[in-house]
Design a binder for these strands. Structure first.
Lengths: 331, 331
DNA sequence: TTGAAAGCGCTAACAT
DNA sequence: ATGTTAGCGCTTTCAA
């Protein structure tokens, strides 16, 4: 890899001049520029982003971090795509870190991100008091949170109306005649789980029914826990006639259990999930689900971050997007 | 962020000494070490990976790149997890680049990776002559290819036995009595598609049947193309009685079309897909599929890369893992 | 319009 | 055992 120096020597100018033509410096003679451009082409010169980043804290390093709890969840894949598209358009590269719901891993990745001098971070914190993310925030790093906020912290956030999304789904279940509706929650400590539970409870109570805490199961937002908690539910003496599942992976797990028991959906047990998937229509039966605009969450978050990087004092924005209940055959 | 200098001043030693204690330098007095460690803790010092990388080309920058064609494909998500786990254990950070089957994007990402002075790259090239990846290879960057190789290039590769995987699936279809078996291929130019087609053809011929080229459709390895090509197939005057789909996303797309036409699987049309998914069992009907050890592909690739980084002259290895036909209800 | 030179934070000789 | 110093490749004054 050739350096600025090599180019300068070949073009017979100083490195300062080369730097100017590269960075669209205004004051440079046309002839000189041509010479430099030629040398650059001949040497296939590629600027070192590393040196650039080291040198100018002020100038943008064009690098942002993306911190995600679980890349196996298609929801985050879509968020990632949204982030990526905007980053690409704005010439940012992204370092993606999947901490797999492991706070130790999260800390390590966040350290690395800081050590890499990223310009900003898009993060779905482990929970609403996540000390690792809060630390970076306090250090002054531009951050925008997705899917979940940080309680008591003034930070840009892009979320979905979780409470309403859950409410609409459960309300629909009730209006359709289901009486014992269970909720399989993701990790209890993450805000989205709480809001979804809130919507679930409100819908039940607003319909003059009673919440039965036996029907609420808490898991870890993963496939395995969908399988197991659904099994617990179906093994009850008085099992639910409908299940509202807290996310993608839980839904898939629950479906697996229901099929294993050879129960008919929705006749014997109905199911509505939070999170829609591209292939929900090909599930057995086609799944009814609360769709989150995941791609858009990522897109908006990245736009917000880029704004914040260029204007660190702009006051934080909380953006709430809406969900939509997609009815198919599972309820 | 405090620097080596800050720590040195606070501890009352030189930066060299600080550097020594950080890098487990052998020659350092216990008392001094303690002082330095104390200063580090007090200042919450974090070394700059950027400066480190700039300084020592020789020393490891602990950064590897991962180039992936389509993160929406769960197969690559699993590969990613395998890579990540090994990288994590070995203290490497990874920059993940999803080029979304867009060669322009691929080039941009590869440029960035080079500009970031990565130690090595794990790549699933766009096709077997991918000039962007070949360029880096020629520049001497340690590379290991996954899922597809680079024809004529001596490079580490981790692949699956695509031809045999396809053969076993199609052979099973034939032995089960299906007569007109279609193949919906992913992008024609990628090696895995070719090998799968080869297995498909061989199985048909070895069973004394004739390959009907009308039944082979080429797409772009995405969901959409599964939907459309399956539609073309089913709209034929003499439609297939079974379909072998070239990957994950195509399978899901084909399933969507079959359901839209309300055809019964496998009675009216059977289907076997390449790539199994965690939730294949919850599809309608539970999907039969050729399982690839995706996580292991990623794991092995990363191990190979780390070896190669430390020993760049070791001669290239081609690793071929086996697939397994998982029979459920779709054929 | 161009060049010289300082310095970003670090490692690795080389000196002491 | 510890310190001094020369860069890595770049941006950015300041001078010419």
């Amino acid at each position: 890899m050739s350096s600025l120096n090599d180019v300068a020597r070949r073009a017979g100018v100083s490195i300062a001049t080369v730097s100017r033509v590269i960075n669209k410096g205004s004051n440079v003679n046309e002839e000189t520029r041509a010479k430099v451009l030629k040398a650059i082409k001949e040497l296939k010169y590629q600027p070192s982003r590393v040196a650039k980043r080291l040198r100018s804290k002020s100038a943008s390093s064009n690098l942002i971090g993306l911190l995600i709890p679980d890349i196996q969840n298609p929801f985050y894949v879509d968020v990632l795509r949204g982030v990526e598209d905007v980053a690409y358009e704005n010439n940012y590269a992204i370092i993606m870190c999947n901490f797999a719901q492991d706070e130790k891993k999260e800390k390590m990745y966040l350290d690395i991100l800081q050590q890499e001098s990223i310009d900003g971070l898009i993060a779905a914190p482990a929970h609403e008091k996540d000390p690792n993310v809060i630390k970076l925030l306090n250090d002054g790093l531009p951050i925008v949170c997705v899917d979940r906020g940080l309680t008591g912290k003034d930070v840009d956030v892009v979320v979905v109306n979780n409470r309403d999304g859950a409410y609409v789904a459960v309300d629909h279940l009730i209006k359709s005649g289901y009486k014992r509706i269970a909720y399989i929650s993701g990790q209890k400590q993450i805000p989205s789980s709480k809001y979804r539970e809130m919507g679930y409870r409100d819908a039940i109570e607003d319909n003059g029914m009673q919440v039965d805490v036996e029907l609420i199961k808490y898991g870890d937002s993963k496939h395995r826990s969908g399988v197991e908690l659904c099994e617990e539910l179906l093994a009850m003496a008085n099992p639910p006639d409908a299940i509202f599942t807290g996310n993608n992976l839980i839904t898939l797990g629950a479906l697996e259990t229901i099929h294993k028991r050879e129960l008919r959906i929705p006749e014997e047990v109905a199911i509505v999930g939070f999170d829609d998937m591209m292939w929900s229509i090909s599930l057995n039966p086609p799944l009814s689900a609360v769709r989150q605009p995941a791609y858009e969450i990522g897109k908006r978050a990245c736009e917000l971050l880029i704004q914040r990087i260029s204007d660190p004092k702009r006051s934080p924005i909380q953006m709430t997007l809406n969900t939509k209940l997609i009815l198919r055959k599972s309820c």
